[in-house]
Amino acid sequence: MSVEAKVIERIHSILEKFDNKYMLNGRIKKSKVIEDLDRYDHNLMEALLSDKLIHDSYTEKLVNVEVFKVNQFIEMLEFKKYWEDSYTKYSNKIGLTAGGKFIDESTDVVLDFPFKDTVLKAGMSKEDLENS
């Protein structure tokens, strides 16, 4: 059994203690877990970090302070389905990325033109069509 499968197994057992808040029919409600991780929900964070395997896998000590790698933990939740039947954590998606995220998932995308004095026309009228 791989480390990832053990972590997922532990996460299941931890989240089951919260009744139906994070689990539905034996499956993790990923969006709810991720939402509460983004809000640093104390009960969820305490439950996760009290497990030694999760603590050792997703914390790092920096200047005498332990930091929980929330983004890395969320990525593991999001890509879990690819671990079960694939050798890669990446989805079957092809596209442009910036900072490790696809540009359609980012709000920091800029369409930049090298010549600022260029005028772009977004459509053609019937007159333009007749003149060309």
Rank of each mutant, 00 (worst) to 15 (best):
M1D: 06
R10F: 01
K17E: 15
D19I: 03
N25V: 06
G26E: 05
R27L: 04
R27H: 08
R27N: 09
I28E: 05
K30N: 10
I34K: 02
D36A: 06
D38S: 07
R39A: 11
N43L: 10
A47D: 02
S50N: 15
S57A: 10
S57G: 04
E60N: 05
L62D: 00
V63W: 02
F68Q: 00
F68R: 03
K69P: 04
Q72S: 11
F73L: 03
L77M: 11
L77T: 07
F79H: 14
K80D: 10
D85L: 00
K89Q: 02
N92M: 02
K93G: 03
G95C: 10
T97L: 01
T97V: 11
T97S: 13
G99D: 12
G100V: 07
I103E: 12
E105S: 14
E105Q: 15
S106R: 15
T107E: 15
V109I: 14
V109L: 12
V109G: 07
V109E: 01
V110P: 00
L111F: 14
L111N: 02
D112C: 03
P114F: 10
P114Y: 12
K116Q: 13
K116T: 12
D117A: 09
T118A: 10
L120T: 08
K121P: 03
A122E: 08
G123T: 09
G123S: 14
M124Y: 13
E127H: 09
L129A: 05
N131M: 08
